[in-house]
Nucleic acid binder design. Sequence first.
DNA 1: CTGGGGAGGGGGCCC
DNA 2: GGGGCCCCCTCCCCA
Length: 560
Amino acid sequence: MANCMVFHTQIASIMEVLANAAVAEICKLVDDDYAVFRLEITQSQKENRTLRRKLQLLELKVSRERVLASRPSSVKIFDRYRGMARGHLTGGHRSSVKPAGPNTWGDDQPITVNEGSGTSTQHVILIESAEAAGPGGLSLVKQERTEGEDPTHSRDIQTGAEAGVVPPVAVEDLATTPQHRTRPSITEVSGTLSAVLKSETETLTVTHRLLHTGSDHGSDPERLLLGRLGCSPAPDSKYLLYGKPSPRTVHSHQDSGGASETGNDLSRCYTTAMDPGIMSLVLETQTDLSRADCNQYSSSVYSEGGIDKKSEVILIDEVTVKMEGDAPLTCNADETHLRERYSQSNTSDFLDCRDRLETNLNVTTHSPLHAVRDRDPVSPSMAPYNSLGSIFFDQVFNSDERARDEGRGGGATSGNSKEKRFLCMFCNKGFSCLRKVEIHQRVHTGENPFSCTQCEKRFSRQDHLKRHQRVHTGEKPFSCPQCEKRFSQAGDLKRHQRVHTGEKPFSCTQCHMCFALAGNLKMHLKVHKGERPFTSVHCGKRFSERSYLRTHQQKKHSAV
DNA sequence: CTGGGGAGGGGGCCC
DNA sequence: GGGGCCCCCTCCCCA
């Protein structure tokens, strides 16, 4: 009996152990399966999100293509340019616009809009050309805010978050979150037209197409003409405005779905800031718009606070940031690139540009720097881009530039007969006519349509080519009456004649030495400054000029 | 270092 | 509107 009891106890123990083992195993299996299951669920959710996102994008693309097909001369919008300096704007308003060009999107350059005191209005427009961006390369971002609005609501126009796509196109205080940017983002600029285009106290300007670019390469006939709705273009304007000249105001919407929910999705514009390698997504959807309306609304909207100003026409094809109020700009973004690009001869120009942007208040500012960034400064292949230069009409002149021009005796700004109403969108410089702006903008675009048949050198201007060809022909039409020396350029002769006159207009402020040539004074100043950037690799001796170093090295060589 | 020339970029003006 | 020219400026190079 006792044995029986012991036996039963042992059996019970064994059973218990076995049961525990079985439970543990079952639990383990369940846990494993649960983990796997949970992983699968997570992956499925991710896939669902991805697919949903793709579906949305495809829908948008289809809609956009439908619109494009319905308007033969569709507005090509560019958002290739970022705003100046990533929001290095001071004063009441700060704005910077990120370029969304196919190759110009940086991974850390979002559309950013900043408004310091938030006094009145702010508009950020990104426009991208389908031609430049390729198929699907349309985008438009318009942001506008009126006083008192909550930036987090009125200005957050991104829909990417909802779609699980990306962080928002930055609308932020750059002073506090200067680096908050990047990530691909989809920004819906407008929901329905009715919702988007509301009448307000502000006027707005809508991009319109420029009919002709005049570029030699002619690869980009699309230009956008921004005209402020509600105001007719200047009577002598050479540009025609499409669309209805009715005052409107474009509002950005936070929820992209709102438009479709209303069933009145007349205009949906998306733009994306893409990480490198991510498929460009720049979608613009516009349906049920007449052609005029397409031109009107698909274009970016440019608004400004005053209705009663003159020169209501603004012509852009890139990005326009209209600054109102005191908003000095600093185009520090990609400054390095520009310096590199213009290091040969345009550095001063770049600096001028920068100065202008920094000091030019109450003037339409543009953001071309980024567009320049990714282009080859010398490659002729940049032609497709070249003609994208844009011209801004405005009555606002840059005071610095004007002073400079007046100092040079330039008459373009003197008097009222030749107002510089055509502003270069790259540097804001004003010109009296369109042609001059087009030529000038080659400075920024690098377009060199005139090539020498003998040496393949290229020039931005025909007269420069002609002048250059004297190198090959040996023509020196300018002869010195004193010494019969001949020169190919009149300026060279004039400069040479100082040899005879003894004129030395360039004097050193530190030692009162005088020089006939500015370059000589410049070199001389290095002596005072002790600048010796050129170092001999052989002996470590330093020189202020490269030529000195070269001479030194040649002497070393010959000595050896 | 200095003097000077070659060549190019850019703006303005005239025709 | 385009061509051409003048002018200024700058960089580079060489003697």
